[in-house]
Amino acid sequence: MRPRAAPRRLTINATMMPRFRLLAVAVLVGVALMAGAAQPVVAQGGDSTLARVQRLVNAGNRSGARQLADSLLAAATEGTSEYAEALFARAYASSSAAEAERDYLRVSVEYPLSARAEDATMMVAQLKLARGDRIGARRNFERLVREHPTGGVAGKAAFWAGRLAVEDGDLGRGCASLAEARSRVSAEDVEQLNQIEYYLQRCTPSALAGAAARAKEESTAVAMPGRGGRDVQRPSAPGAGGVEGRDAGRAAPRDGVAPGAARPATEYSVQVAAFPKQRDAEALAAVLKQRGYDVRVWGEKAPFRVRVGRYATREAAVAAQGRMKASRVNGIVVEAEKK
């Protein structure tokens, strides 16, 4: 049996890039919506927020769509399903891929129980992939499968997670994801099944054994003997806890507000995660607190958000986010809740 040929690639020259990027955003949004994974939240008059914005975009009135989404967002209460719907609509109306990704990410992380969370996570993954962030895309595809296993796009997400892992040499996880994708995809989706089978050709026993051996060598290289025969992971760099960690107090005020100064009307935090169960949020907060972070759990009902710090400006929060990322703590910048 001859191996299947790889899907043909599209070649794009430099003059086509600006137009192609905007088109790619629109196409990717359409793909996620056509997946039909979640029913929209219905607005007043039986017409969903997203449907109204979508009609304006399809009619070529993107600025009007953005104005509508902004007005609905201003009228909605943060923390509600209406707010999540308006955020998703604003992302759809955006002409900037970066702004769209930011709003989709907020829906995915801050509103994991909303009807739009699954589609938003898929969009974040696709937009990251479109701009070349393969690691970020793969993490979001894997997260989608993990958090929305019964959703309508879990099979496609498993395929993309597996494909990226296999292409990056992580055959163990890649082949497992591809096998899961094959079990989820309908037998009628011949094109998707053909793509899955093409990448599964690399999952031979000898290839998997070689990948496992390399992974073992790499894990041994980054570990050193510890007490009691255990392996202790080496710190990634001196002061790996970051400026936000145990040594932060000696460097500068954590939140960018000098002692005794009046606090600004709007403050910002770095949100690390949001959980449907409070005990999970508290567990993560306890771990971060041990590392020296100024962490708290916010929310009286699900989702329970894990947030770090209070910063006087968005710029200060973004800087803190960067330092946290260097210490392998990922998060997004959000407006902090009022004290």
Rank of each mutant, 00 (worst) to 15 (best):
120 A>F: 15
121 T>R: 13
121 T>Q: 14
121 T>E: 12
121 T>L: 09
122 M>L: 14
122 M>G: 05
124 V>N: 05
125 A>Y: 02
125 A>E: 05
126 Q>V: 00
126 Q>C: 06
126 Q>K: 04
126 Q>I: 00
126 Q>M: 02
127 L>F: 12
127 L>W: 07
128 K>I: 02
128 K>T: 02
129 L>M: 05
129 L>Y: 14
130 A>V: 01
131 R>W: 09
132 G>E: 13
132 G>K: 15
133 D>C: 11
133 D>H: 12
133 D>Y: 09
134 R>I: 11
134 R>N: 13
135 I>K: 13
135 I>P: 00
136 G>K: 11
138 R>Q: 13
140 N>H: 04
141 F>R: 03
143 R>T: 01
143 R>Y: 09
144 L>R: 11
147 E>V: 08
148 H>S: 01
148 H>T: 00
149 P>D: 09
149 P>A: 07
149 P>N: 07
150 T>Y: 12
150 T>Q: 09
151 G>P: 01
151 G>S: 03
151 G>K: 03
151 G>L: 13
152 G>A: 14
154 A>V: 00
156 K>I: 01
158 A>V: 00
158 A>Q: 02
159 F>K: 02
159 F>R: 01
159 F>P: 01
161 A>M: 02
161 A>D: 05
161 A>I: 00
161 A>C: 06
162 G>P: 04
166 V>K: 11
166 V>F: 08
169 G>K: 03
169 G>R: 11
169 G>F: 09
170 D>P: 02
171 L>N: 04
171 L>G: 00
172 G>M: 10
173 R>I: 00
173 R>S: 00
174 G>I: 03
174 G>Y: 10
174 G>A: 11
174 G>F: 06
176 A>F: 14
176 A>C: 06
177 S>H: 06
178 L>K: 02
178 L>N: 01
179 A>N: 05
179 A>W: 12
179 A>D: 04
179 A>Q: 15
180 E>M: 02
181 A>I: 02
182 R>M: 04
183 S>D: 05
183 S>P: 05
185 V>D: 01
185 V>Y: 08
185 V>E: 01
189 D>N: 10
189 D>M: 08
190 V>C: 09
190 V>F: 09
191 E>L: 14
191 E>N: 10
191 E>H: 12
191 E>S: 10
192 Q>G: 05
192 Q>K: 07
194 N>H: 09
195 Q>T: 03
195 Q>L: 08
195 Q>S: 08
196 I>D: 06
197 E>D: 15
199 Y>D: 00
199 Y>F: 12
200 L>V: 03
201 Q>T: 04
202 R>L: 14
203 C>I: 00
204 T>P: 10
204 T>Y: 14
206 S>V: 07
207 A>T: 13
207 A>D: 12
209 A>Q: 10
209 A>Y: 10
210 G>R: 13
213 A>D: 03
213 A>Y: 15
214 R>F: 08
215 A>Y: 04
216 K>S: 09
216 K>P: 09
217 E>N: 13
218 E>M: 14
219 S>H: 04
220 T>I: 07
220 T>Y: 13
224 M>G: 04
225 P>S: 13
226 G>E: 09
226 G>C: 15
227 R>A: 15
227 R>H: 06
228 G>P: 08
228 G>E: 08
231 D>L: 15
232 V>E: 14
233 Q>N: 13
234 R>L: 15
235 P>D: 12
236 S>T: 12
237 A>W: 08
238 P>Q: 08
